[in-house]
Design a protein around this nucleic acid. Structure first.
Lengths: 340, 340
DNA sequence: ATATTTTGTGAGAGCGCTCTCATTATAGCA
DNA sequence: TGCTATAATGAGAGCGCTCTCACAAAATAT
């Protein structure tokens, strides 16, 4: 039986409820012997504070929400999200917060989820994975409700909201520049969806690299993917007639699909065609030909998002803050350098 | 401002707090015009009930916890868990529960997590992903605390606890029998860790298939993996000297690693060596040679776990129930049938 | 020695809701 | 018309905690 209350422990130890509360919450001004006596009683009888009562009285739930909107639900085949979640969960553990996961598989899910996250007294703040136009409304409503929010990935309207991101344009530019430097002439890209910030930004970086190095952009070499392996595979098949000799894919998983298509078409990697992906998730080195990729620190990304959010919760919201994390080009076999 | 209370809405509409509560919770015996008036006021002023207050008063949080113990943390590279989580999240959405995720990356995490999940008034029930000896204590303590629990995967001590599982022994037996039927003579297995229920059971199924078909078990063909791609790769390398002509891996991701090792060793798949995995996650068909595998319905597995748990929460705990879900052998290229 | 601060403890007022019980308005039936 | 069922509402007692305030005891300053 563990439905003891503070009152019970107080009675058991002959002190008042207030004193027990002080002990439980580590407040000062408690005599050592009293503290010990109370702690013992708690230990012996297996007392655990009632979360809801505590939340109601203190107006703090010590719980944060992770919202993965509908637009992200599709991407759940991408290991990016589990890794991000892992980073978030770890930071929550470290900072003594609990994590509520709101995963919208469908648009209707989103409608069901919103009233729940909007409830007062459930969450102290939320992390929203974004990037899609359609996610703006959730972000907006959360901000309007004066709920501390950190967005993962640049939101489309980024005023009044704190977010954490990498410099996608710059990172993509670097990746493509590397391919140019290797002497590749017909560099294609498999971009992310045009409705997503990463899709837009990484494509912009691709174009920028070409323009700055005075390479003409051939639109036949630009194709949109959907962040799935199958999408990468299909995109590559559509790209083949344009005879690319290199591909920059906006995610590792798409790069893997593209490499599979290239191999099926009889192309040798990296001799006939080079590949650079984006993310550097463990699966990048899973393939037979290890994938060169633009590493982003996904797990730390999640952790930093939590740290930022907790800071907002505990020290106030404005002005909105933004954190840009570093990326790093990881050169492996798929672009023709560093052969074993 | 959305810190309105029931009382505020009551005042605004000229009724009592009780009446507003009834409207919010869809209780009967409310005059239509009153209901409408209240609903309008709620809509207009953006009222959302206070979750903690509601929980405190009703002793129901409508939140369930998913606990992924330390032993599972290692496996987070396996897409199995994201898929399971997806199934769980979907069912939560459908049944109007929120989901709290407790992901223990380390043993210390587990110690930090336990007091949180043990708090009264936070969770109505928990789903524990298990399979490892070390997870017993969490399960035991939850059950002792009379918290509704559903375990994913047969726990080591399964009395007094409801769980959901597949028949791992039978499934493994089927997979191996298939390889025997195809005429493979030296069938190896890359098992899961010996401390895990699936590791034990799938290995038992492997042995059973051989014994029942009067094939001698060569211990050189039995090796333990760790449910990672790299582990599968290493296991295969250690297996090669024993010259297997088929491998049954206890997970798809290990099978993929094993196939990579086989290919690197110059073996042709499936001509020289056949592979059967376990899970049938999307990545099974990601490889160049599509993987034959024992399909388990991972997403539904998660959903059923939630349904079972919610049933326990709402209709009582005992007797413990168990649900065994079906598996199905999916034959693809890697074991030499159904070539394109 | 008295005044003042610090330390240790208790009393009690909420936090915002649910739910039982009491009460009144309305309908159904003899 | 009165008498009982039912519908519709309000009053109010908690749920288990936190936190402010009051106050006594001990430590320090004057």
């Amino acid at each position: 039986m563990s439905s003891l209350t503070l009152e019970d422990i107080a009675r058991l130890t002959g002190v008042s409820r207030s004193t027990v509360s002080r002990v439980v919450n580590n407040h000062p001004h408690i005599r050592e012997d009293v503290r010990k006596r109370v702690l013992d009683a708690i230990q012996q009888n297996g007392y655990h504070p009632h979360a809801a009562a505590r939340t109601l009285a203190s107006q703090r739930s010590s719980m944060i929400g992770l919202i993965l909107p509908h637009s992200v639900g599709f991407f759940f085949t991408d290991p990016y999200y589990p890794h991000l979640t892992k980073g978030i969960a770890q930071a929550c553990n470290a900072l003594d917060y609990s994590l509520a996961l709101f995963l919208a598989g469908t648009a209707e899910d989103e409608d069901k989820i919103f009233p729940r996250v909007a409830r007062k007294g459930l969450l102290d703040g939320v992390i929203i994975q974004s990037g899609h136009h359609g996610d703006q409304w959730i972000i907006g409503r959360m901000v309007d409700a004066r709920m501390p929010v950190v967005v993962c990935g640049r939101p489309f309207r980024s005023d009044n909201v704190s977010y954490i991101d990498i410099d996608n344009i710059h990172a993509a530019e670097q990746a493509v520049s590397h391919l140019i430097r290797l002497g590749r002439k017909r560099i294609a890209t498999i971009a992310g969806p045009a409705e997503s910030a990463v899709g837009i930004d990484r494509l912009a970086g691709y174009r920028k690299a070409l323009v700055e190095r005075a390479v003409a952009v051939d639109e036949a070499l630009v194709i949109e993917g959907d962040f799935t392996e199958a999408g990468g595979f299909l995109a590559m098949q559509r790209l083949l007639p344009a005879k690319p000799d290199a591909v920059f894919a906006a995610s590792d998983i798409m790069a893997l699909g593209a490499m599979r298509a290239a191999r099926e078409a009889g192309l040798r990697i990296p001799d006939d065609i080079a590949f650079v992906g984006f993310d550097d998730l463990p699966l990048a080195s899973l393939a037979d030909i290890q994938l060169s990729t633009m590493r982003q620190p996904v797990v730390q990304f999640g952790s930093r998002a939590v740290e930022l959010l907790v800071d907002l919760i505990e020290n106030g919201i404005d002005p909105p803050r933004r954190v840009i994390m570093d990326t790093e080009l990881v050169v492996r076999d798929s672009c023709g350098l560093s052969r074993r």
